[in-house]
């Protein structure tokens, strides 16, 4: 089973996770830019974070045979802090870089005016840079947030096929489906979706435009829920090809619209370095 996790925050995960993911079949990931739990208080923190997503984390993933991509954006939560919003002016520099496969995570957290302004501007940036948009839907008032998301996408004029609306569930899936956008499902140990509910949605509406992700981050989450979902699909009677479509070909098709996927399996040695630093500790083998 080959797996492309289209949404995972690897900067928060350990090398043990990378090893377990590779053993489970994960060969490619997309790491969306998001908030870090501890709020940022200025633009420089975003820049260092973006640099880490494009540099150190891509290198780290490659050490474990996993191709790492990222999406770049000002996230909805921090769009409310006027100390952070000037990062919007710097995004074009980062949206031009290799391995940046979408603008994201954008969207709503508390449905404020500041969030809507940042969201709209970033949907425009996606159009200007020929990139898809990756949209987070809120934990609270999710259905209203999803409706408003689709209205903004239509107003900006971004084709629905270039938009992934993420963290969906049984209540929000149909409006996104009807709009023609891609549907993302985050499979969590306790909240959001679980593998069996995911399988039920696939049985009901089919495999088109569906992405399954672990959204693993610094909270209680599990980077192997993509694999668990694949196993649950097989147990429910889906074929190997069905699983490959959901867990590999669908994310390749969506993010491939950027023209910037880097899917050759990284050929690396454990002693390789990124800017001179390795993931080993202590003396380098030489």
């Amino acid at each position: 089973m080959r797996i492309f996790d289209p949404h995972i925050h690897m900067t928060s995960r350990t090398t043990d996770d990378y090893e377990a993911m590779h053993a489970a079949g994960v060969r490619a990931v997309v790491e969306p830019a998001f908030w870090l739990g501890q709020p940022r208080t200025g633009v420089d923190s975003f820049i260092d974070y973006f640099d880490a997503l494009l540099g150190w984390e891509r290198f780290r993933a490659a050490q474990f045979g996993i191709a790492h991509h990222c999406t770049i954006a000002l996230n909805p939560k921090e769009a409310n802090d006027p100390r952070c919003t000037p990062v919007l002016d710097l995004l074009p520099r980062y949206l031009a870089k290799d391995g940046v496969v979408a603008v994201g995570e954008v969207g709503f957290d508390s449905m404020t005016e500041a969030e809507e302004t940042a969201f709209t501007r970033q949907l425009e940036l996606a159009g200007e840079h020929g990139l898809p948009a990756m949209v987070h839907t809120p934990h609270r008032d999710k259905l209203a947030g999803t409706h408003r998301t689709l209205e903004l996408v239509a107003a900006v004029g971004l084709p629905a096929g270039h938009v992934l609306v993420d963290h969906l569930n049984e209540v929000t899936v149909d409006v996104v489906d009807d709009a023609g956008a891609w549907m993302g499902f985050s499979i969590y140990p306790d909240t959001k979706m679980d593998p069996h509910r995911m399988v039920a949605i696939l049985e009901r509406r089919g495999l088109d435009r569906v992405l399954v992700n672990s959204a693993a981050d610094w909270g209680r989450s599990d980077p192997l829920t993509t694999r668990q979902t694949g196993d649950a699909m097989l147990a429910a009677g889906f074929s190997d090809d069905d699983v490959d479509r959901v867990l590999w070909r669908n994310p390749v098709e969506f993010y491939g619209q950027s023209g910037r996927l880097l899917l050759e399996t990284p050929q690396v040695k454990a002693t390789d370095t990124f800017e001179g630093s390795s993931v080993l500790r202590g003396e380098r083998a030489s």
């Binding site: 074009p92 520099r93 980062y94 949206l95 031009a96 870089k97 290799d98 910037r260």
Partner: peptide, 10 residues
């Protein structure tokens, strides 16, 4: 140059 320089390789 702010966009052309980073995208130059691609």
């Amino acid at each position: 140059v702010r966009s052309l320089f980073p995208a130059a390789g691609r």
